[in-house]
Design a protein around this nucleic acid. Structure first.
Length: 290
DNA sequence: CGTGGCCCCTGATTGC
DNA sequence: TGCAATCAGGGGCCAC
């Protein structure tokens, strides 16, 4: 469940259903899912067993559960296909179950991940270089997201204009601003009428302000609708889908009319993925870059 | 150091 | 029907 709105939906579910519960036992079904935990799966299991889980927190696409023994957290990244599900312990174990935490009241917290790009790790907390807040050590370099109180638009604009790359590539760089992925980058650029290959160093302050407002609007609207789900891979902790896919203007809409001007949306190859644009609202810059 | 290309993995879909 | 190629909400790593 990858981008900020989907991860935030999961965070809220965890805060409601697992905060304060104790981990009775841990089962790592696929070691790849804890590969970032360098001391190994047995260390992961031993140290997590018996701890109490705290209130779920999030930065960008990462989320974590602080542990009650202080200074440490269970950090999760969902990658392309990860899910955190809260289920009765007796629920059938699916094919893609990677890590199973049995909690103290007959429920499981399950990490399910078809492609295993995501994973879990036990890690100390450390000060973020972005705002000084206590965050898990492996993500101290991750930027504040555009919906965070401490997000600083002027600082973002300065950093963005200092880069020499395409604006979409910069949006996907989680160090400048976190939480935006392929869907919401395309949607925000469309709202701001900017082409993905626009060189960052040529962006005017007013254009960046438009872009930030577009990012905040699209993330906020998607969150209100429970996120974007095209299929059963992107669900909340109860396995339910969000509805923002009905509101997408360009992402996945190749050959369909732009909701603003009616021109046909185009798909282009971009960084081994896709970029969707309206050719009329978002004309390609003379000097393109990505 | 910043930038850009490649790779990790499984499964659904498309086209020959 | 079979099989290969392509694509999918991500990011780490490594040359340059």
């Amino acid at each position: 469940m990858p981008e900020l709105p989907e991860v935030e939906v999961v965070r809220r579910g965890l805060a409601a259903h697992v905060a304060g519960r104790t981990v009775d036992s841990v089962e790592v079904c696929n070691h790849r899912a804890v590969r970032r935990h360098l001391p190994g799966a047995s260390d992961f299991t031993a140290r997590l067993t018996g701890t109490r889980l705290g209130h779920a927190r999030r930065r960008g696409k990462y989320l974590w559960l602080p542990l009650d023994d202080g200074g440490e957290a269970l950090l999760a990244h969902l990658g392309m296909s990860g899910q955190l599900l809260v289920q009765p312990s007796r629920a059938p174990l699916g094919r893609h179950l990677r890590v199973r935490l049995r909690l103290d009241t007959g429920i499981d917290l399950r990490f399910v991940d078809q492609r295993t790009f995501g994973g879990l790790v036990l890690t100390p907390l450390a000060p973020s270089t972005a705002d000084g807040a206590a965050v898990p050590l492996p993500i101290t370099h991750i930027g504040v997201d555009a919906l965070d109180r401490s997000f600083d638009p002027a600082r973002f604009a300065t950093q963005l204009r200092r880069r020499q790359t395409g604006v979409k590539r910069a949006l996907l760089d989680q160090r400048l601003m976190s939480g935006v992925g392929n869907i919401y980058a395309d949607e925000a650029l469309w709202r701001a009428r900017l082409h993905y290959a626009r060189p960052t160093e040529t962006l005017r302050r007013t254009e960046i302000a438009r872009l930030v407002a577009a990012v905040q609007a699209v993330l906020g609207e998607a969150l209100q609708q429970g996120g974007t789900s095209f299929d059963a891979l992107y669900v909340n902790v109860n396995g339910e889908s969000g509805y923002f896919d009905r509101s997408l203007a360009v992402y996945g809409q190749a050959d369909r009319p732009c909701p603003r001007c009616g021109a046909l949306v185009q798909r282009a190859a971009f960084m081994n993925r896709s970029a969707y644009t309206c050719p009329r609202c978002q004309p390609r810059p003379r000097r393109a870059r990505w």
